[in-house]
Structure formats: C-alpha cells, structure tokens
Design a protein around this nucleic acid. Structure first.
Lengths: 185, 185
DNA sequence: ACCGGATCTGACCGATCGGTCAGACCCTGA
DNA sequence: TCAGGGTCTGACCGATCGGTCAGATCCGGT
C-alpha cells in the first residue's frame, strides 16, 4: 500500500521548519533571511525554496497548527455566552499560547503587517472576537483595555519562558489572567 | 541674544521624526525603509540622511525622550523597597507607556534585535529591574510570569488606543495592573 | 555683487533580499 | 544497464536596501 501518502515531509523539510521557527522567534520574520535559515540547517538557500514555494509559504506552514487550534477555540467560544465564554476563552487561549509558544512569539510586532496576507485575514476577526470574550462582551473601555493587556501580555510572555515546562507555565498564566479579568470563579 | 541655541531642529527635521514614528509603529523598524519615511514627508531619501546620520541614529533620537523617562523611573524605583517599589514601578510605567504610546509600540517584537545596538544595551538591565519590581522582588515563577504579562501587555496595548485620551487610558491600565499584580492598596 | 553656510536632490554604490533555473547527484525499479 | 523521480546546489536575476557624494538652490551678512 501507499502508506507514504501521509508522509509528504522529509527530514530536511522538518529541520527547515524547526530552524525557521527558531530564527523567526529571535530576529522576527522580516529580520530573518532564507540564507539565515539555510545556514542554521547547513544547506543552501535554494534547498529552502525547493521545500517551500516561498518565504510566505514557509510561514504559513509553520503557523498552520496554531491557527487550526485558534479556529477551534473560536468555535468553542461561540458556543457559550457571558461569563462562560470568558472562562472558555481564557482557558483555551492560555492552553494555545503554552502549546505554541514559539509560533505565537514570532508574530510579535509583525502582527499588523503579516495579517495583511490573504491567508491570515480572518485571524483578525477571530482575535477581535477573542478580545470581546475576554472583556466579557462588555464595551466599557476599561474592560476592553484589560482584555487586550491580558491577551497581548500572555502572547508576548509565553515565548520568554521556553525553559519552563507546560504544567508549570499554564497555571501561572491562568492565575494572572483570572485576576486581571476578574473572572468569577 | 542667541535664543536659537535650543533650536537645533528645523521644521523638516521634526516632520521626519513624526513620520518615522508613524511608519515604525505600523510596519516596524526593519519593515520601514528610508524611502517610506521620505515619501510620507514629501522629500527625497537623501534628505532623511542629511538630517540624521543613519537609520539607527533616527531611531535613537526618536526614542531618546522615552528612554530618559525610563531611566528616571528606574532611579525612582531604586529609592524604594518592597511593596512601595512595586507601586512606584506600576504607576511610573503606566504613565510612561501612556505618554510615549507610539515609541513604546514600535519596539514591539523587534525588542530583542534592536537591543543589541550599543545605545540600547543598558535598557535590558533596566527592564529586568522593572520586572523584578513588578514581581515584588519575589523569585517565585508565578510572580515573575505575572510581572512579565502585565509589563508586556501594557507596552503592547497602549499603542492600540491612540484615540483614547491619556486621562482615560491611564486609570484603566493602572486598574488592570493592580489587579493582576495583587498590589496591596 | 559676492560669499558661505544651510538645505535639498539625483545619481550612484556595494550588499543583500526573495526567487529562478539548469544541471549534478543520488537511489530505486524495470 | 539504464531511465526517471526526488533532492540538492551554484550561478544568476531584478529589486530594494542603507548610505555616499557632487552639485544645485536658496538666503542672510558684508
């Protein structure tokens, strides 16, 4: 049988993805050249572009798992209302941020720019709904400010604790999120 | 008398600074070319480099006021201990973030890269002391995580509310910071 | 009328960017 | 043995990057 149907990735392919994730997290997307990624793996720049149609395609493939999980979270939030949605959003986003620390971190700062790409446009809408859920669907400026601080703070922070295991980072992030959002427990 | 001693800046100089702040805030430092800045002002790229020795020098001059205020805050924190330092740090940083929204926001994401420049190295130490003060000088991982979430969240958020006046944004940020850090009031 | 400094610009430079392409080097199946 | 697909590379492309430079323009002082 053709069991390699589910194996479109070679070892080099995966190495390049991992190297790109590392470099993007340090020097950002625009600040990382294909040469940099190739050098880290030990191959030529042309090899990077053999495995990925373009630099953008590399980024998309890198972010795909995290985006999928974000879409699932969005659907789960939509199935709840009020304080329930707030708890689901906080729990789910902390889980996502911990699991995809590198991927989330590399979006830092280049968010407004990268989101212009067609593949990422709908993420803006999702993140808006996420902010609304964090704010408890209140339109008070204080609630929206708190929601954005927590959301951005978690996203920014998770990449800084790559040495701390998931089981320790997750409750710490959840605790500060609940306090800041005044989640009724 | 020579009252122009305190006027080493021309109108074009200031226009270029303002345009650079705007562009850096949208597309980031690396994502903004000297051409972009020149185009926004309506002059040539060469004019930009006539008023500023280099792109780096432009960034340094743009950040100088915010950096000065950050250094003053650092000194003020050092003059306090324990919970007093925590309150001083939170109040002072929120004030700084609100006052220099654009400048803080443009550091987003490119922080680790830009800080490599010699002019910015000591800022890393200051921000470490700031995190420590936010954490109440505790080395519990939960306290440090909360401190970083609040610090990064405020820095990231303040640039997103350019339409809200200072008097409204400041108390909103302070409230969420106090809740998240469990500041004893 | 002339000069000197400040301001500004077009043309140009080397470097690097993302991306293309023809071909070399495997390895496998016929 | 050979054909063919997968993998990889050096050489090359046009575009753009930050930065340099000689010179044009303007303007106030002498």
């Amino acid at each position: 049988m053709l069991e390699d149907m589910a194996r479109p990735t070679t070892a080099t392919h995966d190495e390049l993805l991992a190297a790109a994730a590392r470099r993007f997290g340090v020097t950002g997307y625009k600040g990382t050249s294909l040469q940099d990624i190739a050098r880290e793996v030990g191959c030529s720049k042309a090899t990077v572009l053999y495995h990925f149609a373009s630099k953008d395609a590399l980024l998309c493939e890198l972010m795909a798992p995290a985006i999928t999980m974000l879409e699932e979270l969005d659907a789960r939030i939509a199935a709840h209302t009020g304080a329930g949605a707030q708890r689901v959003a906080a729990d789910g986003f902390v889980d996502l941020a911990v699991r995809f620390r590198r991927e989330i971190a590399l979006l830092r700062g280049e968010f407004p720019d990268l989101l212009q790409q067609p593949a990422f446009t709908h993420i803006q809408q999702i993140s808006e709904r996420l902010v609304a859920a964090f704010a408890g669907f209140s339109d008070r400026p204080e609630a929206r400010v708190a929601a954005l601080v927590v959301l951005a703070g978690i996203a920014e922070t998770c990449g800084e604790f790559l040495d701390i295991p998931d089981e320790q980072l997750r409750p710490a992030l959840l605790a500060v999120a609940y306090r800041a959002l005044e989640v009724t427990t």
